[in-house]
Amino acid sequence: MSEKKAHQEITAKLRAECKRLLETGTVHTVIGFAPGSMPGRTVPVFITNPQEVAQLTWNPFCAANLSKYLLDHHQPGGKAAIVVKGCDSRGIVRLLQDNQVLRDEVHILGIPCRGQYDHRKIPGGLEVEETEPLEQGTADVAHPELHLEKCAYCENPTPVIYDLLLDDAVAPSTDSKGRFTEITDLEAKTAQEKSTYWDDHFSRCLRCYACRNACPACTCRECVFDQFDPDWVSKRNNLTENTAFHLIRAFHVAGRCVDCGECDRVCPVQIPLRLLNRKIIKDLDELFEAPTPGTDLNVKPALGDFTPQDPDEFH
């Protein structure tokens, strides 16, 4: 099937299913993607009226992980439907594991994903001529080199949890070799080199907290970075305080970060936040043989569980 046909068919199926879900009262809200104001952009949309399902769309520019919105849109005794890709579905699993959302409050519409485009990589930027063929699937060939970085080694293109799957399952990347290369490369450098690398990035941070707001693992209602009394983390925007912010942010989501890459994608100054979080995922794998968080609802989170076999280095 051509890409175009696939997008159209999925979109049509999605709209029909959401219409049915809303009409029958199975769900009170549908959280999905709608076209943005220019090609290559989609925006989250929240639909409660079955007549409005035509807003929903599916194309390879649906990069956002919508699972965070469940925190605001779940209602006791009712269900929200949500559109997820494979990586997003890990976010839902992790929210379920933390009881942030209950399984019967969510109706998961899974879409197996063939990769999402990164418009920053598209030559010509956001030019309509460049983007539209990719968006509509009419480009002669798929362009995996223009995908978001995370898509290259995707472990779960097919959602790991769903109530309905809207397309045939997609096989995961078999190229597991390159998965942690960027991390091992940086690990091999000296402390000074590593420090310089991060200083260059952290010094540019605006402390806009977009990374935190997009993250499905950041679920605290009151965030340590917002509090003034006690003033746990200074709000000053300098290298020291920014470094403190970044280390604390990364550590606060340790064991819960599902590697959806949203922090990285939403950062307006392109700080490689995902690299920091993936370092932790790599260590969890090496120390606890823990899979990427959110992969399996029944695997207890490595940092939320104790076993006598856990490694100990501090004797």
Binding site: W198, A250, L276, I280, L287, F314
Partner: peptide, 15 residues
Amino acid sequence: MIMKRLLEFAGLEPE
């Protein structure tokens, strides 16, 4: 263990 590795990754000397 995770914290220690994270700090080293960020460029703090292991000691």
